[in-house]
Design a protein around this nucleic acid. Structure first.
Length: 403
DNA sequence: ATGTGC
């Protein structure tokens, strides 16, 4: 099914579409639109193989929940949040000491916690010391979150401390990835055919991509450290797994679009929602046959726009959306985000993990329940940050003093 | 997804 490398045919869609492997059962909730997008992706220039996971759902430039092997680089498939991922941390706080409301009140202001020496942290990560420094340690919007969790159940034969608290951070490269995406789109008129990896544009994107991946990983670490400061706890990294990136393999470039990049034996979080547990799994040898990928979460069931017709029509409805069945709460002051990110918008992560396990890709290690989910707090933090930057804080103080 | 917009 090959087009020869270097010939002009590599710039046109393959006559023979790439093979699509579907890692989900008949019972999995998969939208027809996502399946259609898979077919389109299989015809993109240079694409050799596609693996689709049980959290599959439609995306802007192609389905999400996919690993795709290609001879060419497709920045559109990766999108703007280059390096986005899930990181799980253990806190040195025992579950028995937790008071949900108190923890929620503390977490609410976590983004106001000072980052000691952001420049040094960026340099340690091999990045320029000023690179999007002001966005470091922030969660962002959309499906991103920082969630305090407790172990619900540890799988038989697995040693995992179920008396501690955990923190699951889902975030990415914020404005940095967005700027890389935008400059790529504006400078490359025919991006739908992807980029030649040895062209200047290809090399520029790959280099920027690598920085985004490093920045996003550091961002999750700093989100966790700030949350730890707010809660009075040390954080210990357990897993740091990106799901929006490109990895180089012997067969080409493996594009992960919402598909966790794992190696056999590695621990990886599979995020639930406020209505279903999150899972910690161990990647099996089987992942090598799945382009080194697994699902990263439950996956969307309904698109954002359609959620407005489904939930949160009354005030009490919307308040209910901030509570979960385990006595946990969500911090989300953005009314639209409450509706778009309601638990009902997501599939059950348990079904996703069951499909992955049945395919021999993972073994379950533990399940975790949501206690405090930080999505978005009122603009206080942003306002404070802007003021500090533009020197308005002093003015505000004076103003306050006059009252 | 986004210093999310003029």
């Amino acid at each position: 099914m090959g087009t020869s490398i270097g010939s002009e045919s590599s710039l046109t869609p393959s006559v023979q579409p790439a093979a699509i492997h579907r890692v989900f059962s008949d019972k999995a909730w998969i939208e027809g639109a996502a399946l259609h997008q898979l077919e389109e992706m299989a015809r993109l220039a240079g694409v050799r193989e596609i693996v689709a996971f049980p959290d599959l759902h439609p995306g802007k430039y192609g389905a999400t929940g996919v690993a795709l092997l290609s001879e060419r680089i497709h920045p559109l498939l990766i999108g703007n949040d280059i390096g986005c991922g899930m990181s799980l941390f253990a806190l040195d706080l025992p579950l028995r000491k937790l008071k949900v409301d108190k923890a929620a009140a503390r977490l609410r202001a976590f983004e106001a916690q000072e980052i000691d020496d952001a420049s040094a942290r960026l340099e340690e990560a091999g990045l320029p010391p000023e690179l999007f420094q002001n966005s470091l340690g922030t969660i962002g919007g959309g499906n991103h979150f920082c969630e305090l969790q407790a172990i619900d159940k540890v799988a038989d034969g697995e040693a995992f401390d179920d008396q501690r608290l955990y923190l699951l951070v889902h975030s990415g490269s914020r404005g940095f990835g967005a700027s890389v995406f935008e400059s790529t789109v504006s400078s490359q008129p025919s991006l739908k055919d992807g980029l030649d990896p040895v062209s200047e544009a290809g090399e520029v994107w790959l280099a920027a991509h690598d920085r985004c991946v490093a920045w996003a990983s550091l961002n999750r670490q700093l989100v966790a450290e700030r949350a730890g400061l707010a809660l009075g706890a040390e954080v210990e990294l357990i897993a740091d797994i990106p799901h929006n990136l490109v990895r180089v393999s012997s067969g080409g470039f493996i594009h992960h679009k919402g598909a966790a990049a794992v190696r056999p034996g590695e621990l990886a979080p599979v995020a639930g929602s406020r209505a279903s547990l999150s899972h910690l799994v161990r990647a099996g040898e089987g992942v090598t046959g799945a382009l080194g990928a697994i699902s990263h979460g439950a996956g969307r069931k309904y698109d954002r726009a359609s959620m407005y017709g489904r939930v949160g029509k009354t005030r009490s409805d919307r308040e209910q959306l901030l509570r979960n069945a385990w006595g946990g709460v969500a911090i989300c002051d953005d009314r639209n985000l409450v509706i778009e990110e309601a638990a009902a918008a997501y599939k059950d992560a348990g079904h996703v993990v069951a499909d992955l396990a049945a395919a021999g890709l993972v073994t379950p290690v533990a399940t975790l329940r949501p206690l405090v989910t930080y999505k978005k707090a009122v603009d206080e933090v942003e306002t404070e940050r802007r003021d500090r930057k533009s020197g308005h804080r002093e003015m505000r103080r004076q103003k306050d003093g006059w009252r």
